[in-house]
Amino acid sequence: MSKRAIYLVPLSVFLVMAVYFAIGLTKDPKIIPSALIDKLIPEFSLPPIDNGTPQGYGKGFSSADFKAGGISVVNVFASWCLPCRAEHPFITKLSKMNVAKVYGLNFKDTPKNALKWLQELGDPYDAIGADPRGRVGIDWGVYGIPETFVVDGTGKIYFKYVGPLNGDILENQILPVIEKLKR
């Protein structure tokens, strides 16, 4: 290295760090990469929401449902979660498109509130499972709802979105993933 070039070392080190920091600043620290991407879904079985009848409401679902082939979307929601209310129309939209089975994981909710919420906003889910203590949610690595998972036909988690869905995210993130899995 020539003597002149050595004076450029601090500048280049600075530039490399500046690029790293610039990229780092655009990332939201609240969004944690899921440890479960490309892993099989956890083993679980969720009952339907208790509505006083023996069969309950929402059918319930278990890990076996995901291994039958076909793409599934699992949306973690609760009546106490305000952003869930905001994303509800987009879950409904996704459900109406019939591109994937849409499961609702009712996280740490009371049956009464959950039923009221579904009655008021509508029930877009193919099946709902109640997780009143949040144990299954923890097995799915849920830490801040709403969270939405896309699961492929073999029961592998392919994609996870943390936060409320909106038109843009549905169009540009969720649907392309489903399209890709279909091929």
């Binding site: 944690i32 990469p33 440890a35 479960l36 956890p42 923890i138 097995d139 799915w140 690595g141 830490y143």
Partner: peptide, 8 residues
């Protein structure tokens, strides 16, 4: 816990 939430 790491299996569910990653190294983070």
């Amino acid at each position: 816990v790491v299996a569910r939430y990653g190294d983070f």
